[in-house]
Design a protein around this nucleic acid. Structure first.
Lengths: 170, 170
DNA sequence: TGCCAATTTCATTTTTTTCTGAAATGAATG
DNA sequence: CATTCATTTCAGAAAAAAATGAAATTGGCA
């Protein structure tokens, strides 16, 4: 059986999502939502988080009733964040996925992949502001102070965030 | 003059957004974007950040070429985050706005308004998971450990984030 | 109090994001 | 090396989020 073909099979598959899984999915959909991740990403992670056995992509898709396209995209995102790992299962061609449960790791790669690039480009933008400030002859205290604050903000961010990830014990 | 009525006036207004303002707007649109705020919110804050004089809502809307509806909504959001203050200007009925530039304050109210409510509801969700776990008789080590990790995650979050806001010197 | 400018609200439109489904690609097996 | 199953990709559909614009509301002032 690859995909459910009739109603009773669908029901069987759906009934595999029990209240614990539902709460877990809800939990991670919201958490990922805060971090700007699409619903499907939270759903997949939430499902895997309480799964004792690794799950194949098509099982994930059918349990969550999402398309395999979504499942593929969602897993791609989760892989890039190192939030899931694929496991080898003997005698099965398919990849099987488990959730990475060390949140410190997830947090760390989220910061590196999603936040740091923004902070880097913010620094370029600040350089251009300094440029504008000198060419537009607005070198008054007001503008200089505001610009200094921005520099301090980005510097604090790019120092604190990676440090935080190392410091966490979760 | 309330709103620009003809082409030359529009051009005059637009030319008030100079390269420094443009970079500032760009900067804050992206920063706010990371925090899940709509474009207009970042635009308004970015404009006010480098404005020496407080600006009225209609001036903000015309400079940014956004509707007054957007400006009103954006300012409402920024007010709720204490990211802008309204200033009284003698002989002018309109409210005039300035940017709060102590990022520690903004960060603090962002955590309190946008993150903490999620962490609170996460705790309820974890309670329900414990409920499910006992009624579904899945009280095995695997599920108990995962649940403990979630508890630790939310506890760490709800302790660390507010502490962080107090600790920051920006 | 009544007027009018300023602001808010909200139904509708526009834009952006996410999901779907099918075709293309890849990869293991006989 | 051909077949078949698994996965990725991507154009279009659907859903969600944000912006608009006009009507409703507010609040200061004569």
């Amino acid at each position: 059986m690859v995909l459910a073909k009739n109603k009773s099979e669908v029901l069987t598959l759906n009934s595999n999502i029990r209240s614990l899984e539902l709460e877990s999915i809800d939990f991670f959909v919201r958490l990922m939502g805060i971090l700007g991740m699409p619903r499907s990403v939270g759903e997949i992670y939430g499902l895997l988080y309480f799964s004792e056995t690794p799950l194949s992509m098509d099982k994930i898709a059918s349990k969550l009733e999402i398309s395999i396209g979504s499942a593929s995209q969602g897993l791609k995102t989760l892989k890039s964040l190192k939030a899931v790992h694929s496991t080898y299962i003997a005698g099965d061609r398919r990849d099987h996925y488990t959730a990475e449960t060390e949140f410190r790791k997830l947090f760390s790669s989220f910061i590196n992949d999603e936040i740091m690039p923004h902070l880097d480009s913010a620094k370029d933008r600040i350089s251009r502001m300094e440029q504008s400030l000198s060419t537009e002859k607005k070198l008054d205290e007001f503008h200089l102070i505001r610009l200094e604050k921005l520099k301090k903000l980005t510097k604090t961010g790019s120092r604190l965030l990676p440090a935080l990830a190392g410091f966490l014990k979760i």
